[in-house]
Design a protein around this nucleic acid. Sequence first.
DNA 1: TTGTAGGCGTTATCAT
DNA 2: ATGATAACGCCTACAA
Lengths: 335, 335
Amino acid sequence: MPATIGDVARLAGVGRGTVSRVLNDRPNVDPATRERVQRAIAELDFVPSLTARRLSLGRTNTIMVVGPFLTRPSAVERLSGIQAALSATSLDAVSTSVETTERRVAVIRDASRPERADGLILIHIAPSTIELERILAAGIPCVLVDAHHRRLPRVVVDDVDGGQLAARHLLDLGHKRIGFIGEVPLAEFGFSSTRLRLRGVVRVLRSAGIAIPDEHVIRGEHNREGARLSALALLAGERPPTAIIAASDTEAMGVLEAARIRGLRVPEDLSVIGYDDIDVADFIGLTTIRQPLFRTGTRAVERLLGIIAGDDPRPLREVLPVELVVRSTTGPAPV
Amino acid sequence: MPATIGDVARLAGVGRGTVSRVLNDRPNVDPATRERVQRAIAELDFVPSLTARRLSLGRTNTIMVVGPFLTRPSAVERLSGIQAALSATSLDAVSTSVETTERRVAVIRDASRPERADGLILIHIAPSTIELERILAAGIPCVLVDAHHRRLPRVVVDDVDGGQLAARHLLDLGHKRIGFIGEVPLAEFGFSSTRLRLRGVVRVLRSAGIAIPDEHVIRGEHNREGARLSALALLAGERPPTAIIAASDTEAMGVLEAARIRGLRVPEDLSVIGYDDIDVADFIGLTTIRQPLFRTGTRAVERLLGIIAGDDPRPLREVLPVELVVRSTTGPAPV
DNA sequence: TTGTAGGCGTTATCAT
DNA sequence: ATGATAACGCCTACAA
């Protein structure tokens, strides 16, 4: 039904090639001809078919974004950055949230074909050996966000430092018994960030001569309910921690709920630190580690576009800094 | 680089047509041949090119989702519903958040072409006359979510009832001075829901013999900061309201911040009601009107797919119910 | 500078 | 049941 390049050519009285040249701002077109063609284009309200162009060019004009739980506030922020960076281009972003292993395998398998996408952004997913081979074999540009892999370009935040900042802050406040609540590391999804944050925490505590007992590190589901349960378990112990570091703001909220349930005042009886600095963190006065979520998205796109354009992807690893934001859920350790 | 249907045909020693038939589970192909073709497909790890299929079929296998501020928690929930409903299909969803009029016009113009998308979901956008004509002329199936238009199929919630529920609740608690805080109705985006909610509020109050003075209806930016400012203005008046109805939970949070700033206790001095029942509403104990955000998304997809399949789109208007969720930000009116 | 023809990978039509 | 062939709409050589 819509006009095709042939219709335009006919109306303008030129060949299709000429129309194509005008369309793509190519040289070697007589100004008068160009003018005539443009009028015809306007006349017919012609817009070239993306599909036909894709097939002809062998490019898809699409980038695929894949990751688990893309509706979490932190992921939404990253996606938002991706969209923002992409809106200046003519590329489509197709994002898929994968919650199960089967979906992940199927979706990545589908996404890592050059006829499917020009580029791939993996959020929170470190490709398996098979997936990596596929990606490399297909030669499809791929950037990881908040995930680690030696062989692939990636935009990460300094999670170890995040853990360190949190621990040092609590140490400065006099806390000695510190707990950590994160999610269970799903085998299929390499939730490395939680591990790295914990590593940072442990490192700082150790250098202060403090060990963090195993029973003070609890992992549950990555959501408020899961964290609440974990925190309740933690606080029910013999000598419960006086401060808890959560792997995300959402989980920190679960910890706050647990404190409320146990009748603990925050921060007088219990200090709580989150991670991410999502929008509501400010509202509830949550002390947290701010990470540049939006920027990880824009940077991933910038790097991906660069790689597609042929830039050297190195250095592979780009680390964005994190920052401690002190609000009102942390205070001096109780005596 | 990847295998094509021709490679498969050659390897299996058949024609391309036969491979295509096998691919699409068509009858009239000898079991033995089918077997042979399938082996060749597996052998070459062949996956048909989506692009080529699109061009040949004249379908895009894509649905476009357009709306303003798609990163707001409520919109994210809707998108999440859309994605969920779509994940069972092989359709791609390309969603675009439009924040300015130019972008809106350009994006909808682009999206409402059949060669661009098989269907269109407009969130929070009622098409202008021009846009409507375009959509109808193009014959592209389109479903509205949380937006109203006589001529188009739409999935909405009962916003008037939402306003009524909120007002009645406050009335029952003895409130007589009730304020309303919403966002400014941007001309280009028909934020009708806020208007409808207010209408419900006014209706109930009027039937109780209460008028809501103009200065108790304030509109600002649709976010926490905007609502906070609006609420501060509202509370600074001569006889400030004892209860405030916000057009969204996010705005309700701004109202709560304002109360905090003014040293007002909630709900003893001021009652606050939100709208949406987003995830954090529960955490902060916000009384609110719950609307089925996720379901509006899934329903929109279901209806769109139906329409694409040729179903009668009528009845055009599908209304989903809302429900009052009483938590701890509302209480008896102060004496 | 400009028109023509071939190709991108698939599906559909039409013989056989 | 199956193979050849013509679309689908664009881009890019190549020829003129």
